[in-house]
């Protein structure tokens, strides 16, 4: 399974960015291969309009199964994510990526469809 996180940094200790559209990075964890990669999203965090759909598009290209974030995407981004059949998990806004992953595995985070 591939899991995406919105984060403020590039490693497991990075705090989760509670925002979706204007997150600094998207962290991708491929469980099968045990590989963690970081995708820079700072170019999009500077756009004036439509940060949500643009970030959703970037995420879509990575084909994750799950997205773990803080508050959850707004209407526009949510619509785009629906298209990609990505499960949205929220409530990780104050955790690090590692903590968020563990919390998700323990079923402690909320899913939203």
């Amino acid at each position: 399974m591939k899991i995406a996180f919105t984060t403020k940094g590039t490693d497991w200790d990075s705090p989760i960015d509670p925002r979706f559209g204007r997150t600094d990075y998207i962290l991708m964890y491929d469980e099968d291969k045990d590989v963690l990669t970081a995708i820079d999203n700072t170019d999009i965090s500077e756009v004036a309009h439509g940060a949500g759909p643009r970030t959703a598009q970037k995420l879509f290209e990575q084909k994750p199964d799950v997205l773990i974030t803080g508050n959850g995407p707004g209407g526009n981004a949510a619509r785009a994510l629906q298209q990609g059949n990505i499960k949205i998990v929220t409530g990780a806004g104050t955790m690090t990526a590692k903590q968020a992953y563990d919390a998700y595995k323990d079923g402690k985070l909320k899913s939203r469809k």
Partner: peptide, 9 residues
Amino acid sequence: KFNAVIKLG
């Protein structure tokens, strides 16, 4: 220029 049209797959 407004990211209002997006190609997804």
